[in-house]
Design a protein around this nucleic acid. Structure first.
Length: 558
RNA sequence: GUGCCCGUGGCUUAAUUGGAUAAAGCGACGGCCUCCGGAGCCGUAGAUUGGAGGUUCAAGUCCUCUCGGGCACACCA
Protein backbone atom coordinates (compact mmCIF):
# COMPACT_ATOMS: atom_id res chain seq x y z
CA UNK A 1 0.00 0.00 0.00
CA UNK A 2 2.80 2.39 -0.73
CA UNK A 3 0.94 4.07 -3.53
CA UNK A 4 -1.88 6.50 -3.00
CA UNK A 5 -5.42 5.35 -3.03
CA UNK A 6 -6.20 7.69 -5.84
CA UNK A 7 -3.39 6.54 -8.09
CA UNK A 8 -4.52 2.95 -7.91
CA UNK A 9 -8.13 3.71 -8.72
CA UNK A 10 -7.23 6.27 -11.36
CA UNK A 11 -5.23 3.63 -13.16
CA UNK A 12 -8.13 1.21 -13.08
CA UNK A 13 -10.43 3.80 -14.56
CA UNK A 14 -7.93 4.79 -17.22
CA UNK A 15 -7.47 1.14 -18.18
CA UNK A 16 -11.19 0.71 -18.52
CA UNK A 17 -11.48 3.76 -20.75
CA UNK A 18 -8.66 2.51 -22.96
CA UNK A 19 -10.42 -0.80 -23.27
CA UNK A 20 -13.59 0.98 -24.31
CA UNK A 21 -11.70 2.93 -26.91
CA UNK A 22 -10.25 -0.27 -28.32
CA UNK A 23 -13.71 -1.81 -28.43
CA UNK A 24 -14.97 1.21 -30.28
CA UNK A 25 -17.35 2.35 -27.57
CA UNK A 26 -15.69 5.74 -27.11
CA UNK A 27 -14.70 7.84 -30.11
CA UNK A 28 -12.03 9.89 -28.35
CA UNK A 29 -8.35 10.56 -28.88
CA UNK A 30 -7.23 11.63 -25.45
CA UNK A 31 -8.32 10.76 -21.96
CA UNK A 32 -8.78 13.85 -19.80
CA UNK A 33 -7.26 13.94 -16.36
CA UNK A 34 -9.17 11.63 -14.10
CA UNK A 35 -10.30 13.44 -11.00
CA UNK A 36 -11.24 11.61 -7.85
CA UNK A 37 -13.38 13.35 -5.30
CA UNK A 38 -13.83 12.54 -1.68
CA UNK A 39 -17.56 12.28 -1.31
CA UNK A 40 -19.49 14.47 1.07
CA UNK A 41 -22.39 12.11 1.42
CA UNK A 42 -21.95 8.57 2.70
CA UNK A 43 -24.56 7.23 0.31
CA UNK A 44 -22.19 8.24 -2.47
CA UNK A 45 -19.47 5.89 -1.29
CA UNK A 46 -15.98 6.81 -0.16
CA UNK A 47 -14.59 8.26 -3.33
CA UNK A 48 -16.09 9.24 -6.66
CA UNK A 49 -15.18 10.31 -10.16
CA UNK A 50 -16.89 12.65 -12.58
CA UNK A 51 -15.05 11.28 -15.59
CA UNK A 52 -18.20 10.14 -17.34
CA UNK A 53 -19.60 13.67 -17.16
CA UNK A 54 -16.39 15.07 -18.55
CA UNK A 55 -16.27 12.55 -21.36
CA UNK A 56 -19.84 13.04 -22.48
CA UNK A 57 -19.00 16.21 -24.36
CA UNK A 58 -16.02 14.70 -26.13
CA UNK A 59 -17.43 11.26 -26.82
CA UNK A 60 -20.88 12.61 -27.65
CA UNK A 61 -22.62 10.06 -25.47
CA UNK A 62 -24.90 10.35 -22.46
CA UNK A 63 -22.95 10.47 -19.18
CA UNK A 64 -24.90 7.58 -17.72
CA UNK A 65 -24.09 5.39 -20.73
CA UNK A 66 -20.42 6.25 -20.47
CA UNK A 67 -20.45 5.40 -16.80
CA UNK A 68 -21.90 2.02 -17.59
CA UNK A 69 -19.29 1.35 -20.23
CA UNK A 70 -16.58 2.25 -17.76
CA UNK A 71 -17.72 0.01 -14.94
CA UNK A 72 -18.41 -2.85 -17.31
CA UNK A 73 -14.77 -2.87 -18.28
CA UNK A 74 -13.43 -2.09 -14.82
CA UNK A 75 -10.98 -4.60 -13.42
CA UNK A 76 -12.97 -6.17 -10.60
CA UNK A 77 -10.07 -8.10 -9.21
CA UNK A 78 -8.31 -5.25 -7.45
CA UNK A 79 -7.99 -5.34 -3.71
CA UNK A 80 -9.07 -1.77 -3.01
CA UNK A 81 -12.63 -1.48 -4.19
CA UNK A 82 -15.48 -3.34 -2.60
CA UNK A 83 -18.34 -1.87 -4.55
CA UNK A 84 -18.97 0.43 -7.51
CA UNK A 85 -22.16 2.28 -8.28
CA UNK A 86 -23.41 4.78 -10.82
CA UNK A 87 -25.37 7.76 -9.60
CA UNK A 88 -27.70 10.39 -10.99
CA UNK A 89 -26.09 12.65 -13.58
CA UNK A 90 -23.18 10.29 -14.21
CA UNK A 91 -20.97 9.96 -11.17
CA UNK A 92 -19.20 6.69 -10.47
CA UNK A 93 -18.97 5.98 -6.76
CA UNK A 94 -16.52 3.62 -5.09
CA UNK A 95 -16.54 1.92 -1.72
CA UNK A 96 -13.28 0.81 -0.12
CA UNK A 97 -12.72 -2.72 1.12
CA UNK A 98 -12.37 -2.83 4.89
CA UNK A 99 -9.40 -5.18 4.66
CA UNK A 100 -7.65 -2.71 2.48
CA UNK A 101 -8.35 0.12 4.93
CA UNK A 102 -6.81 -1.83 7.79
CA UNK A 103 -3.47 -1.97 6.01
CA UNK A 104 -3.00 1.71 6.61
CA UNK A 105 -2.88 1.11 10.35
CA UNK A 106 0.13 -1.15 9.88
CA UNK A 107 1.76 1.49 7.74
CA UNK A 108 1.24 4.20 10.33
CA UNK A 109 2.51 2.07 13.20
CA UNK A 110 5.44 1.06 11.09
CA UNK A 111 6.51 4.51 9.91
CA UNK A 112 5.44 6.58 12.92
CA UNK A 113 7.03 10.06 12.67
CA UNK A 114 7.81 9.49 9.02
CA UNK A 115 4.27 8.68 8.10
CA UNK A 116 2.97 11.48 5.93
CA UNK A 117 6.17 12.14 4.09
CA UNK A 118 5.35 12.05 0.42
CA UNK A 119 7.29 12.78 -2.74
CA UNK A 120 5.20 15.10 -4.88
CA UNK A 121 7.95 17.70 -4.59
CA UNK A 122 10.53 15.39 -6.14
CA UNK A 123 13.34 17.29 -4.48
CA UNK A 124 12.56 20.55 -6.28
CA UNK A 125 14.50 23.39 -4.68
CA UNK A 126 12.31 26.22 -3.46
CA UNK A 127 13.23 29.24 -1.43
CA UNK A 128 10.71 30.81 0.87
CA UNK A 129 11.33 34.37 1.90
CA UNK A 130 9.09 35.82 4.56
CA UNK A 131 8.76 38.36 7.36
CA UNK A 132 11.80 40.39 6.14
CA UNK A 133 10.63 43.28 8.27
CA UNK A 134 12.82 46.37 8.35
CA UNK A 135 14.80 46.32 11.56
CA UNK A 136 13.28 49.61 12.61
CA UNK A 137 11.09 48.27 15.38
CA UNK A 138 9.77 45.13 16.99
CA UNK A 139 7.51 42.68 15.15
CA UNK A 140 3.80 43.26 15.47
CA UNK A 141 1.01 40.73 15.15
CA UNK A 142 0.67 41.14 11.38
CA UNK A 143 4.29 40.11 10.96
CA UNK A 144 3.51 37.17 13.19
CA UNK A 145 0.89 35.99 10.75
CA UNK A 146 3.36 36.16 7.85
CA UNK A 147 5.93 34.35 9.96
CA UNK A 148 3.64 31.44 10.78
CA UNK A 149 2.31 31.14 7.25
CA UNK A 150 5.83 31.03 5.81
CA UNK A 151 7.19 28.75 8.47
CA UNK A 152 4.34 26.27 8.32
CA UNK A 153 4.28 26.26 4.56
CA UNK A 154 7.96 25.39 4.57
CA UNK A 155 7.30 22.45 6.88
CA UNK A 156 4.45 21.21 4.74
CA UNK A 157 6.45 21.54 1.55
CA UNK A 158 9.32 19.65 3.12
CA UNK A 159 6.97 16.85 4.10
CA UNK A 160 5.73 16.82 0.53
CA UNK A 161 9.25 16.22 -0.76
CA UNK A 162 10.38 19.69 -1.72
CA UNK A 163 13.76 21.00 -0.75
CA UNK A 164 13.10 24.21 1.11
CA UNK A 165 15.24 27.06 2.34
CA UNK A 166 13.82 29.78 4.57
CA UNK A 167 15.25 33.24 4.30
CA UNK A 168 14.91 36.63 5.96
CA UNK A 169 16.00 39.67 3.98
CA UNK A 170 17.33 42.41 6.20
CA UNK A 171 16.89 45.96 4.95
CA UNK A 172 19.82 47.15 6.98
CA UNK A 173 20.55 50.32 5.08
CA UNK A 174 18.85 53.22 3.36
CA UNK A 175 16.86 56.24 4.39
CA UNK A 176 14.69 54.55 6.99
CA UNK A 177 17.72 53.15 8.73
CA UNK A 178 19.29 56.63 8.72
CA UNK A 179 16.20 58.04 10.38
CA UNK A 180 16.23 55.18 12.85
CA UNK A 181 19.82 55.94 13.84
CA UNK A 182 19.03 59.62 14.16
CA UNK A 183 16.04 58.86 16.36
CA UNK A 184 18.16 56.91 18.82
CA UNK A 185 20.99 59.42 18.67
CA UNK A 186 18.61 62.23 19.42
CA UNK A 187 17.06 60.39 22.38
CA UNK A 188 20.56 59.67 23.62
CA UNK A 189 21.53 63.31 23.50
CA UNK A 190 18.29 64.43 25.11
CA UNK A 191 18.87 61.85 27.80
CA UNK A 192 22.28 63.30 28.52
CA UNK A 193 20.88 66.81 28.71
CA UNK A 194 22.08 67.87 25.27
CA UNK A 195 19.32 69.83 23.64
CA UNK A 196 18.87 68.14 20.27
CA UNK A 197 15.77 68.32 18.16
CA UNK A 198 14.02 65.00 17.58
CA UNK A 199 13.65 64.30 13.84
CA UNK A 200 10.12 65.12 12.70
CA UNK A 201 9.76 61.81 10.89
CA UNK A 202 11.64 59.90 13.58
CA UNK A 203 10.59 56.70 15.30
CA UNK A 204 8.82 57.49 18.53
CA UNK A 205 8.41 54.09 20.16
CA UNK A 206 9.52 53.39 23.69
CA UNK A 207 12.05 50.88 22.36
CA UNK A 208 13.97 53.79 20.82
CA UNK A 209 14.40 55.41 24.21
CA UNK A 210 15.35 52.07 25.71
CA UNK A 211 18.13 51.60 23.20
CA UNK A 212 19.34 55.17 23.76
CA UNK A 213 19.43 54.53 27.48
CA UNK A 214 21.36 51.32 26.92
CA UNK A 215 23.98 53.17 24.90
CA UNK A 216 24.24 55.83 27.56
CA UNK A 217 24.72 53.18 30.23
CA UNK A 218 27.36 51.40 28.20
CA UNK A 219 29.28 54.29 26.65
CA UNK A 220 28.49 57.25 28.91
CA UNK A 221 28.79 60.59 27.19
CA UNK A 222 31.31 59.41 24.64
CA UNK A 223 29.01 60.36 21.72
CA UNK A 224 27.38 63.35 23.37
CA UNK A 225 26.71 66.16 20.91
CA UNK A 226 28.79 64.54 18.17
CA UNK A 227 27.54 64.79 14.61
CA UNK A 228 30.33 63.15 12.57
CA UNK A 229 29.71 60.26 10.18
CA UNK A 230 31.43 57.76 12.43
CA UNK A 231 29.08 58.55 15.30
CA UNK A 232 26.07 58.36 13.04
CA UNK A 233 27.18 54.95 11.79
CA UNK A 234 27.69 53.78 15.31
CA UNK A 235 24.12 54.64 16.27
CA UNK A 236 22.76 53.06 13.14
CA UNK A 237 24.65 49.82 13.55
CA UNK A 238 24.07 49.51 17.25
CA UNK A 239 20.35 50.10 16.84
CA UNK A 240 19.89 47.74 13.91
CA UNK A 241 21.80 45.01 15.68
CA UNK A 242 19.80 45.53 18.83
CA UNK A 243 16.43 45.47 17.10
CA UNK A 244 17.40 42.55 14.89
CA UNK A 245 18.36 40.50 17.92
CA UNK A 246 14.95 41.24 19.39
CA UNK A 247 13.28 40.15 16.17
CA UNK A 248 15.28 36.92 16.08
CA UNK A 249 14.37 36.18 19.65
CA UNK A 250 10.69 36.87 19.09
CA UNK A 251 10.63 34.61 16.07
CA UNK A 252 12.40 31.86 17.93
CA UNK A 253 9.87 32.05 20.73
CA UNK A 254 7.24 31.74 18.07
CA UNK A 255 8.85 28.58 16.73
CA UNK A 256 10.10 30.26 13.57
CA UNK A 257 13.66 29.73 12.46
CA UNK A 258 15.40 30.86 9.32
CA UNK A 259 18.14 29.12 7.39
CA UNK A 260 19.60 32.32 5.99
CA UNK A 261 19.63 35.93 7.16
CA UNK A 262 20.47 37.96 4.09
CA UNK A 263 21.81 41.49 4.45
CA UNK A 264 20.86 44.16 1.95
CA UNK A 265 24.02 46.01 2.85
CA UNK A 266 26.11 43.05 1.73
CA UNK A 267 24.84 43.60 -1.80
CA UNK A 268 26.27 47.11 -1.74
CA UNK A 269 29.51 45.95 -0.21
CA UNK A 270 29.94 43.48 -3.05
CA UNK A 271 29.04 46.16 -5.59
CA UNK A 272 26.09 44.07 -6.75
CA UNK A 273 23.84 47.07 -7.30
CA UNK A 274 26.16 48.65 -9.83
CA UNK A 275 26.60 45.30 -11.55
CA UNK A 276 22.87 44.85 -11.95
CA UNK A 277 22.46 48.38 -13.29
CA UNK A 278 25.21 47.75 -15.82
CA UNK A 279 23.63 44.49 -16.84
CA UNK A 280 20.19 46.00 -17.35
CA UNK A 281 21.77 48.93 -19.15
CA UNK A 282 23.54 46.59 -21.54
CA UNK A 283 20.14 45.12 -22.38
CA UNK A 284 18.91 48.59 -23.29
CA UNK A 285 16.36 48.60 -20.52
CA UNK A 286 17.59 51.68 -18.71
CA UNK A 287 17.22 55.35 -19.59
CA UNK A 288 17.83 58.69 -17.93
CA UNK A 289 15.07 61.17 -17.24
CA UNK A 290 14.79 64.14 -14.85
CA UNK A 291 18.23 63.27 -13.56
CA UNK A 292 17.24 59.77 -12.47
CA UNK A 293 17.82 56.33 -13.99
CA UNK A 294 14.66 54.44 -14.93
CA UNK A 295 14.08 50.76 -15.62
CA UNK A 296 11.65 49.94 -18.42
CA UNK A 297 9.42 47.70 -16.36
CA UNK A 298 6.42 48.74 -18.45
CA UNK A 299 7.82 46.60 -21.25
CA UNK A 300 7.08 43.60 -19.03
CA UNK A 301 3.59 44.48 -17.94
CA UNK A 302 4.17 46.98 -15.15
CA UNK A 303 1.90 50.01 -15.35
CA UNK A 304 4.84 52.41 -15.62
CA UNK A 305 8.63 52.52 -15.56
CA UNK A 306 10.40 52.72 -12.22
CA UNK A 307 13.30 54.71 -10.87
CA UNK A 308 16.25 52.62 -9.85
CA UNK A 309 18.79 55.38 -9.23
CA UNK A 310 17.59 58.66 -7.79
CA UNK A 311 18.56 62.11 -8.94
CA UNK A 312 20.97 62.28 -6.00
CA UNK A 313 22.78 59.18 -7.26
CA UNK A 314 21.53 56.85 -4.53
CA UNK A 315 19.94 53.62 -5.79
CA UNK A 316 16.36 52.96 -4.75
CA UNK A 317 15.20 50.02 -2.70
CA UNK A 318 13.91 48.52 -5.93
CA UNK A 319 17.46 48.44 -7.33
CA UNK A 320 18.82 46.42 -4.46
CA UNK A 321 15.77 44.19 -4.54
CA UNK A 322 16.51 43.34 -8.17
CA UNK A 323 20.08 42.50 -7.24
CA UNK A 324 18.75 40.42 -4.38
CA UNK A 325 16.45 38.41 -6.63
CA UNK A 326 19.26 37.90 -9.09
CA UNK A 327 21.29 36.49 -6.25
CA UNK A 328 18.47 34.10 -5.42
CA UNK A 329 18.38 32.89 -8.99
CA UNK A 330 22.12 32.43 -9.07
CA UNK A 331 21.93 30.30 -5.95
CA UNK A 332 20.13 27.70 -8.05
CA UNK A 333 16.56 27.73 -6.75
CA UNK A 334 13.98 26.47 -9.20
CA UNK A 335 11.36 28.67 -7.67
CA UNK A 336 11.18 31.36 -5.06
CA UNK A 337 8.15 32.28 -3.03
CA UNK A 338 7.99 35.68 -1.39
CA UNK A 339 5.47 36.10 1.38
CA UNK A 340 4.38 39.72 1.68
CA UNK A 341 1.89 41.68 3.70
CA UNK A 342 -1.18 43.01 1.90
CA UNK A 343 0.23 46.53 1.82
CA UNK A 344 2.94 45.37 -0.59
CA UNK A 345 0.69 43.87 -3.24
CA UNK A 346 1.26 46.85 -5.51
CA UNK A 347 4.89 45.81 -5.69
CA UNK A 348 4.25 42.43 -7.34
CA UNK A 349 3.95 43.59 -10.93
CA UNK A 350 7.12 45.62 -10.59
CA UNK A 351 9.11 42.72 -9.19
CA UNK A 352 7.77 40.28 -11.75
CA UNK A 353 8.74 42.73 -14.48
CA UNK A 354 12.23 42.95 -13.00
CA UNK A 355 12.51 39.15 -13.02
CA UNK A 356 11.76 39.17 -16.72
CA UNK A 357 14.10 42.07 -17.36
CA UNK A 358 16.83 39.90 -15.89
CA UNK A 359 15.88 37.25 -18.43
CA UNK A 360 14.38 34.79 -15.98
CA UNK A 361 11.03 33.10 -16.52
CA UNK A 362 8.16 34.94 -14.92
CA UNK A 363 7.17 31.78 -13.08
CA UNK A 364 10.44 31.86 -11.16
CA UNK A 365 8.89 34.24 -8.64
CA UNK A 366 5.61 33.74 -6.87
CA UNK A 367 4.26 36.08 -4.25
CA UNK A 368 1.84 35.15 -1.51
CA UNK A 369 -0.10 38.10 -0.20
CA UNK A 370 -1.09 37.72 3.41
CA UNK A 371 -4.05 39.83 4.46
CA UNK A 372 -4.07 41.97 7.56
CA UNK A 373 -4.79 41.11 11.13
CA UNK A 374 -7.27 43.01 13.25
CA UNK A 375 -7.02 42.56 16.97
CA UNK A 376 -10.24 42.53 18.91
CA UNK A 377 -10.30 43.16 22.62
CA UNK A 378 -13.55 43.35 24.55
CA UNK A 379 -15.40 43.53 21.28
CA UNK A 380 -13.43 46.55 20.09
CA UNK A 381 -10.72 46.90 17.51
CA UNK A 382 -7.21 47.57 18.80
CA UNK A 383 -5.21 50.03 16.72
CA UNK A 384 -1.77 49.20 15.40
CA UNK A 385 0.52 51.86 14.04
CA UNK A 386 4.26 51.26 14.00
CA UNK A 387 5.36 54.88 13.80
CA UNK A 388 3.47 56.00 16.87
CA UNK A 389 4.57 53.02 18.87
CA UNK A 390 1.03 52.15 19.94
CA UNK A 391 1.01 48.72 18.37
CA UNK A 392 0.69 45.45 20.12
CA UNK A 393 3.85 43.52 19.49
CA UNK A 394 4.11 39.86 18.59
CA UNK A 395 5.93 39.41 21.86
CA UNK A 396 2.96 40.80 23.79
CA UNK A 397 0.60 38.56 21.89
CA UNK A 398 2.59 35.41 22.65
CA UNK A 399 2.87 36.42 26.27
CA UNK A 400 -0.86 36.94 26.37
CA UNK A 401 -2.20 33.85 24.59
CA UNK A 402 0.77 31.51 24.19
CA UNK A 403 2.61 30.23 21.15
CA UNK A 404 0.22 27.42 20.29
CA UNK A 405 -2.90 29.53 20.26
CA UNK A 406 -1.26 32.37 18.35
CA UNK A 407 0.04 30.01 15.68
CA UNK A 408 -3.21 28.13 15.37
CA UNK A 409 -5.31 31.27 15.08
CA UNK A 410 -3.22 32.48 12.18
CA UNK A 411 -3.27 29.07 10.54
CA UNK A 412 -6.92 28.18 10.93
CA UNK A 413 -8.08 30.56 8.24
CA UNK A 414 -7.02 31.09 4.68
CA UNK A 415 -4.17 33.61 4.70
CA UNK A 416 -5.81 35.72 2.02
CA UNK A 417 -8.74 36.66 4.15
CA UNK A 418 -8.49 39.17 6.95
CA UNK A 419 -7.84 37.69 10.35
CA UNK A 420 -10.00 38.88 13.18
CA UNK A 421 -7.99 37.89 16.19
CA UNK A 422 -10.23 37.96 19.21
CA UNK A 423 -7.95 38.14 22.21
CA UNK A 424 -10.70 37.20 24.62
CA UNK A 425 -11.53 33.98 22.79
CA UNK A 426 -7.85 33.19 22.31
CA UNK A 427 -7.25 33.57 26.01
CA UNK A 428 -10.24 31.57 27.13
CA UNK A 429 -9.44 28.00 28.02
CA UNK A 430 -12.87 26.90 26.99
CA UNK A 431 -14.77 25.24 24.21
CA UNK A 432 -14.64 28.45 22.24
CA UNK A 433 -10.97 27.83 21.72
CA UNK A 434 -10.33 25.23 19.03
CA UNK A 435 -6.71 24.71 20.07
CA UNK A 436 -7.77 23.12 23.31
CA UNK A 437 -10.30 20.98 21.52
CA UNK A 438 -7.57 19.50 19.37
CA UNK A 439 -4.94 19.14 22.04
CA UNK A 440 -7.56 17.58 24.26
CA UNK A 441 -8.00 14.76 21.78
CA UNK A 442 -4.30 14.03 21.97
CA UNK A 443 -4.18 14.21 25.76
CA UNK A 444 -7.17 11.93 25.96
CA UNK A 445 -5.46 9.26 23.87
CA UNK A 446 -2.32 9.53 25.95
CA UNK A 447 -4.40 9.12 29.05
CA UNK A 448 -6.07 5.96 27.76
CA UNK A 449 -2.74 4.50 26.70
CA UNK A 450 -1.38 5.18 30.18
CA UNK A 451 -4.40 3.51 31.69
CA UNK A 452 -3.91 0.45 29.51
CA UNK A 453 -0.29 0.28 30.47
CA UNK A 454 -1.20 0.39 34.16
CA UNK A 455 -3.53 -2.53 33.54
CA UNK A 456 -0.67 -4.37 31.88
CA UNK A 457 -2.31 -4.42 28.51
CA UNK A 458 0.54 -4.27 26.06
CA UNK A 459 0.14 -4.01 22.33
CA UNK A 460 1.34 -7.11 20.52
CA UNK A 461 3.59 -7.00 17.55
CA UNK A 462 1.90 -5.64 14.50
CA UNK A 463 1.09 -9.02 12.98
CA UNK A 464 -0.82 -10.16 16.00
CA UNK A 465 -3.37 -7.40 16.05
CA UNK A 466 -6.72 -8.40 14.70
CA UNK A 467 -7.88 -5.30 12.87
CA UNK A 468 -10.95 -7.09 11.54
CA UNK A 469 -12.50 -6.43 14.93
CA UNK A 470 -12.62 -2.76 14.07
CA UNK A 471 -15.91 -3.00 12.26
CA UNK A 472 -17.94 -0.28 13.95
CA UNK A 473 -19.04 2.65 11.83
CA UNK A 474 -17.12 5.15 13.98
CA UNK A 475 -13.99 3.03 13.70
CA UNK A 476 -14.12 2.87 9.94
CA UNK A 477 -14.78 6.61 9.85
CA UNK A 478 -11.69 7.22 11.91
CA UNK A 479 -9.56 4.97 9.73
CA UNK A 480 -10.75 6.76 6.61
CA UNK A 481 -9.85 10.04 8.24
CA UNK A 482 -6.35 8.73 8.90
CA UNK A 483 -6.20 7.60 5.30
CA UNK A 484 -6.85 11.16 4.17
CA UNK A 485 -3.79 12.53 5.99
CA UNK A 486 -1.40 12.14 3.07
CA UNK A 487 -3.94 13.61 0.73
CA UNK A 488 -4.33 16.61 3.03
CA UNK A 489 -0.58 17.17 2.99
CA UNK A 490 -0.47 16.85 -0.75
CA UNK A 491 -3.29 19.29 -1.31
CA UNK A 492 -1.96 21.71 1.24
CA UNK A 493 1.52 21.60 -0.28
CA UNK A 494 0.49 21.93 -3.90
CA UNK A 495 -1.93 24.78 -3.29
CA UNK A 496 0.33 26.46 -0.71
CA UNK A 497 -2.52 26.59 1.77
CA UNK A 498 -1.56 25.66 5.31
CA UNK A 499 -5.12 26.09 6.55
CA UNK A 500 -6.20 22.95 4.73
CA UNK A 501 -4.10 21.03 7.21
CA UNK A 502 -5.57 22.91 10.15
CA UNK A 503 -9.04 22.05 8.95
CA UNK A 504 -7.98 18.43 8.60
CA UNK A 505 -6.60 18.39 12.11
CA UNK A 506 -9.80 19.73 13.59
CA UNK A 507 -11.77 17.19 11.61
CA UNK A 508 -9.59 14.33 12.81
CA UNK A 509 -9.88 15.42 16.43
CA UNK A 510 -13.62 15.66 16.07
CA UNK A 511 -13.87 12.17 14.54
CA UNK A 512 -11.85 10.79 17.41
CA UNK A 513 -13.95 12.55 20.07
CA UNK A 514 -17.07 11.04 18.52
CA UNK A 515 -15.58 7.56 18.49
CA UNK A 516 -14.48 7.95 22.08
CA UNK A 517 -17.94 8.86 23.33
CA UNK A 518 -19.64 5.98 21.57
CA UNK A 519 -17.21 3.13 22.20
CA UNK A 520 -14.97 2.08 25.02
CA UNK A 521 -11.37 1.43 24.13
CA UNK A 522 -10.47 -0.71 27.10
CA UNK A 523 -12.98 -3.54 27.21
CA UNK A 524 -13.36 -7.00 28.76
CA UNK A 525 -12.27 -8.55 25.50
CA UNK A 526 -8.48 -8.49 25.38
CA UNK A 527 -8.17 -8.93 21.65
CA UNK A 528 -10.67 -6.17 20.92
CA UNK A 529 -8.98 -3.88 23.40
CA UNK A 530 -5.68 -4.35 21.66
CA UNK A 531 -7.01 -3.62 18.22
CA UNK A 532 -8.72 -0.48 19.51
CA UNK A 533 -5.59 0.60 21.32
CA UNK A 534 -3.73 0.18 18.06
CA UNK A 535 -6.30 2.35 16.33
CA UNK A 536 -6.05 5.20 18.79
CA UNK A 537 -2.30 4.83 18.80
CA UNK A 538 -2.37 5.45 15.06
CA UNK A 539 -4.62 8.44 15.64
CA UNK A 540 -2.12 9.72 18.16
CA UNK A 541 0.69 9.42 15.63
CA UNK A 542 -1.22 11.33 12.97
CA UNK A 543 -2.26 14.01 15.45
CA UNK A 544 1.33 14.40 16.54
CA UNK A 545 2.64 14.52 12.98
CA UNK A 546 0.13 17.22 12.15
CA UNK A 547 0.97 19.18 15.29
CA UNK A 548 4.60 19.08 14.25
CA UNK A 549 3.81 20.37 10.80
CA UNK A 550 1.86 23.25 12.30
CA UNK A 551 4.42 23.93 15.00
CA UNK A 552 1.95 23.35 17.80
CA UNK A 553 2.86 21.38 20.88
CA UNK A 554 1.25 18.08 21.76
CA UNK A 555 0.56 17.89 25.50
CA UNK A 556 0.26 14.40 26.98
CA UNK A 557 -1.90 15.83 29.71
CA UNK A 558 -3.57 19.16 30.15
C1' G B 1 -9.94 57.72 -10.59
C1' U B 2 -6.93 52.85 -11.64
C1' G B 3 -5.34 48.03 -9.82
C1' C B 4 -5.39 43.82 -6.17
C1' C B 5 -8.01 41.08 -2.10
C1' C B 6 -12.65 40.05 0.39
C1' G B 7 -18.53 39.87 0.73
C1' U B 8 -21.37 32.59 2.69
C1' G B 9 -26.97 31.37 8.81
C1' G B 10 -27.13 36.63 14.34
C1' C B 11 -21.14 36.39 14.82
C1' U B 12 -16.20 34.02 13.11
C1' U B 13 -15.15 31.05 9.06
C1' A B 14 -15.03 25.90 5.66
C1' A B 15 -16.30 23.96 1.14
C1' U B 16 -11.49 18.47 -1.85
C1' U B 17 -9.92 24.37 -6.96
C1' G B 18 -16.32 23.60 -11.55
C1' G B 19 -19.36 18.48 -8.68
C1' A B 20 -24.16 15.55 -5.91
C1' U B 21 -28.64 17.71 -0.20
C1' A B 22 -23.45 24.61 1.06
C1' A B 23 -20.16 22.38 6.21
C1' A B 24 -18.27 23.59 11.25
C1' G B 25 -17.53 26.53 15.72
C1' C B 26 -19.66 30.45 18.79
C1' G B 27 -24.38 32.37 20.30
C1' A B 28 -30.01 30.37 21.21
C1' C B 29 -33.03 26.18 22.67
C1' G B 30 -33.31 20.81 24.27
C1' G B 31 -30.89 16.20 25.67
C1' C B 32 -26.28 12.62 27.34
C1' C B 33 -21.80 10.94 33.05
C1' U B 34 -22.86 3.68 38.32
C1' C B 35 -17.70 2.91 33.29
C1' C B 36 -11.09 4.85 29.66
C1' G B 37 -10.40 12.92 31.13
C1' G B 38 -17.77 16.51 30.29
C1' A B 39 -11.92 21.28 27.81
C1' G B 40 -16.39 15.93 25.39
C1' C B 41 -20.92 13.88 22.61
C1' C B 42 -26.04 14.09 20.34
C1' G B 43 -30.31 16.87 18.61
C1' U B 44 -33.50 21.47 17.07
C1' A B 45 -33.97 26.32 14.94
C1' G B 46 -31.15 29.51 11.64
C1' A B 47 -28.57 30.48 4.14
C1' U B 48 -32.17 32.64 -2.54
C1' U B 49 -23.64 32.23 -0.83
C1' G B 50 -24.26 41.23 -1.30
C1' G B 51 -27.24 42.05 -6.13
C1' A B 52 -28.20 41.39 -11.68
C1' G B 53 -27.02 38.94 -16.04
C1' G B 54 -23.88 35.15 -18.68
C1' U B 55 -20.80 30.51 -19.74
C1' U B 56 -22.52 24.29 -19.29
C1' C B 57 -24.58 18.33 -17.92
C1' A B 58 -23.20 21.04 -13.26
C1' A B 59 -21.51 27.80 -10.37
C1' G B 60 -20.30 29.88 -3.48
C1' U B 61 -16.25 28.80 -7.06
C1' C B 62 -15.26 31.04 -13.96
C1' C B 63 -16.75 35.89 -17.21
C1' U B 64 -19.31 40.91 -17.46
C1' C B 65 -21.78 44.69 -14.83
C1' U B 66 -23.19 46.65 -10.06
C1' C B 67 -23.28 47.72 -4.63
C1' G B 68 -20.59 47.47 0.01
C1' G B 69 -15.57 46.71 2.99
C1' G B 70 -10.06 46.55 3.06
C1' C B 71 -5.34 47.73 0.78
C1' A B 72 -2.10 49.87 -2.71
C1' C B 73 -1.04 53.47 -6.43
C1' A B 74 6.98 57.46 -4.23
C1' C B 75 13.22 59.58 -6.84
C1' C B 76 9.91 55.38 1.37
C1' A B 77 11.40 50.55 2.49
Amino acid sequence: MKTYVSEQIKKNIADSIKKNIRQGNFQIREIPEIILLKTKNKSHGDIATNIALQLSGIAKLKPMDIAHFIIDNLDAKNNVIAKVEIAKPGFINFWFKDDWLYQILDDIRDQKDDYGKIDVGKGKRIQLEFVSVNPTGPLHVGHGKCAVIGDTLSKILKAAGFKIEKEYYINDQGKQIDILGQSVQSRYNIFLGEDKEFPSDGYKGKYITDIAREIAAKYGDRFKGKEDQETKNFFKEFTVKNILNGIKKDLENFGVKFDVWFSEKSLFNKNKIQEIIDLLNSKGLIYKEKGALWLKTSVFGDEKDRVIVRENGIPTYFASDIAYHQDKYQRGFEKIIDVWGADHHGYIERMKAAIQALGYPQSFLDVLIVQFVTLIKEGKEVGMSTRDGEFITLRDLIKEVGKDVARYFFLMRSYDSHTEFDLDIAKSQSMENPVYYIQYAYARICSILRKAEEANIVLDKIDKINFQLLDKEEELELIKKLLFFKEAIKRSALSWKPHLLTTYLYDLASTFHKYYTVHRIITEDDELTKSRLALIDCTKIILLNTFNLLGISAPESM
